[in-house]
Design a protein around this nucleic acid. Structure first.
Length: 595
RNA sequence: GGUCCUAUAGCUCAACAGGAUAGAGCAACAGUUUUCUAAACUGUAGGUUCUAGGUUCGAUUCCUAGUGGGACUGCCA
């Protein structure tokens, strides 16, 4: 809340003055006044009745009177039951708007790393990845806006059995197909062979079962499974032919991913590859063994005992000496800390890995690494479809590229039916459809609290009315339209930069609320950064857009009869536009100049 | 079995360290354009916040126990 520190200070003083009791300013709790009551800030006095030894209303009144007298900040108060509602002097808002304090924003030196996306290279990205990517990208922007030095990192799971499955299927059944020869996007082509593998493998298993072989044995002994394992072994020993195929096919996938990332408007500062990092972490495991923090079983496997932390025994290295998933993460974390000396390492990863990241932290803690508590798991929940869970086996996975294309196509249909855009040539129009379509999609996903499982309804995701991205974009475009109109008139034009004095402005109700919204921006960003919650920025943008639409409906901005009012409203509108654009920017959403 | 997440209007979501009569949007119904973009605005209706206890001035929020949904608990990643 704006001025919250000042107000808390005033209340602390009042309590001291009245009851001779000192309270820490930080202990004072204030909140925004509910809109059905008069006032801006509410102080709940119930907890202080023991000190005041008066009724709730009496206490509220006493404190209210002192607060109003002692500062120009508060213009009046209302005591309703135990609630002290304070009205902030309108002039204070106006002054804060007209004469903004210079931001002393300094960037913290140690970087914050945000890891997101983390794809496998055996199939294209899907809706689940989109939630991950949008959250990660938005979070990086929010944290950057809050004064952090951000490094966006991606770790690509580019090796392993799953990759070999696509490779083998392509080798056996691919007829040398390439993205060029087929016109299929690289990641989709590789994904196609992953599916082919599964189909052929199932055939083999079924056929073996028909010959009386048990399912278990068939699944392990099917020729394709044996071939895949052989291929993986060859990969690990550096077999040239396998490595070459691997590089080629991964190359196709990266070309495909790049297109998807680009359409989503996201990027990375550094990309790590699991093929480079999967061997890391072994020294960490060895060091842990030496220290006696880990232990070795008779078969040679290495474990850590986390039962004292409420978890279980956890495997860190296989009996044959090879790494498991977490070993790699141990190594990568240390690698990154050595490279960046990060202040925070934020992993944007689905909540199915909550346990994994708990273990990761605790292992470092037990080892005494200084950065164990700088590791954060930004956990997000799954995305469901109206038909239920997404299941790749049942083909109900929503493909990222399809979704993006549909969203944009829908934006085009709707925009054309509005018929407002004759001024745009084709290229501009296409860009606008992209802006609006992606605005709808991104907002739809980011407005939901990451912790919550969310339902993805394709029909609603492309909505443009109500609590949606395009609604906010529309408010922005309307303001730009006003500003264009103002810019075309010589006398009005100058009003945009006219220096106004506090005493000239008496804001109307909606104007006051817009002032509050504008002044609230930085704090919203800070809160979103602290809580790792893009949804707060989304809510802010929606509220502000809604307020502006109401204001727009009730008032005329450009009125040649009233230059002061026009100047103020133009300046306020411009500021609202920039707040909306900035808020959407933090969500990775672009704004249109008209729509 | 154990651990964790989750449950709010018909639907999708809010509700900031516990605060006033639990709010938005969609869908439904009824209105508002000679005016800067109606992709907008206004109104009506819609709730025992999963259940039962507890903590206190006050609980959607915290605690306990259930129930529904989900995840994890692999020498998979």
């Amino acid at each position: 809340m704006i001025f919250s520190e000042e107000i808390k200070g005033l209340i602390t003083q009042a309590i001291y003055q009245l009851y001779n009791v000192s309270i820490e300013t930080s202990q004072i709790l204030i909140e925004p006044t509910k809109k059905e009551f008069e006032g801006d800030v509410t102080f709940v006095v119930f907890p202080y009745l023991k000190i005041s030894k008066k009724s709730p209303v009496e206490t509220a009144k006493q404190i209210g009177e002192i607060v109003v007298q002692s500062s120009g900040l508060i213009s009046s108060f209302q005591a309703v039951a135990g609630f002290l509602n304070l009205s902030i002097n309108n002039k204070v808002y106006v002054d804060a708007f007209l004469n903004p304090a210079l931001k002393t924003s300094s960037i913290k030196p140690n970087p914050v790393l945000v890891e997101y996306s983390s794809p496998n290279t055996n199939k294209p990205l899907h809706l689940g990845h989109i939630r991950n990517i949008l959250l990660g990208f938005s979070l990086s922007r929010i944290l950057a806006a809050d004064g952090n030095n951000i490094k966006k990192v991606n770790i690509v799971n580019d090796r392993g059995v799953h990759i070999c499955k696509s490779m083998l299927a392509w080798q056996l059944f691919g007829n040398n197909e390439t993205p060029e020869s087929t016109g299929i996007k690289g990641d989709h082509l590789v994904g196609k062979y992953y599916v082919v593998f599964d189909a052929k493998y199932r055939e083999q298993v079924t056929e073996m079962e028909a010959r009386g072989i048990s399912k278990d044995v068939a699944e392990k002994q099917a020729p394709l499974m044996l071939q895949v394992q052989e291929m993986l072994r060859k990969w690990e020993t550096g077999d040239e032919a396998v490595l070459s195929l691997w590089q080629t096919m991964n190359g196709w996938v990266y070309d495909g991913f790049d297109i998807t990332y680009s359409k989503l408007g996201v990027d990375f500062d550094e990309i790590y590859y699991e093929s480079n990092t999967y061997l890391l972490g072994k020294e960490i495991v060895a060091a842990g063994l030496n220290k006696g923090v880990f232990f070795k079983k008779e078969d040679g496997s290495v474990w850590v005992d986390l039962t004292d932390e409420g978890l279980d025994l956890k495997l860190l290295q296989r009996s044959d000496g090879t790494s498991v998933y977490i070993t790699q993460d141990l190594g990568t974390a240390k690698l990154r800390f050595d490279a960046y000396n990060f202040d925070k390492m934020i992993y944007v990863v689905g909540n199915e890995q909550d346990y994994h990241f708990k273990v990761l932290r605790l292992v470092f803690k037990k080892l005494g690494y200084p950065f164990w508590d700088k590791l954060y798991h930004m956990s997000y929940n799954m995305v469901d479809l109206p038909s239920g869970k997404m299941k790749s086996r049942e083909g109900t996975v929503v493909d990222a590229d399809d979704l993006i294309a549909q969203t944009i196509a829908n934006a085009e249909t709707l925009t054309r039916s509005m018929g407002k855009l004759d001024v745009y040539d084709d290229a501009h129009a296409q860009q606008l459809y992209h802006t609006i379509g992606m605005g709808a999609l991104k907002y739809y996903i980011l407005k939901v609290d990451p912790e919550k499982r969310m339902l993805f309804n394709p029909a609603e995701s492309i909505d443009i009315n109500g609590n949606t991205g395009p609604f906010i974009q529309y408010a922005y475009a309307r303001i730009k339209s006003i500003l264009r109109k103002a810019g075309n008139d010589e006398t009005v034009k100058n009003l945009i930069h006219l220096k106004l004095d506090v005493s000239q402005i008496k804001p109307e109700e909606k104007e006051k609320e817009l002032l509050k919204a504008v002044l609230q921006f930085d704090e919203t960003v800070h809160e979103a950064a602290t809580k790792l919650a893009p949804s707060l920025v989304a809510a802010y943008a929606f509220e502000t857009a809604k307020l502006y639409n109401q204001f727009y409906h009730d008032h005329v901005v450009i009125d040649l009869e009233k230059t002061t009012t026009t100047a103020f409203r133009l300046q306020l509108s411009a500021k609202v536009a920039s707040c909306l654009a900035n808020a959407l920017f933090l969500l990775g959403i672009e704004v249109p100049e008209r729509m």
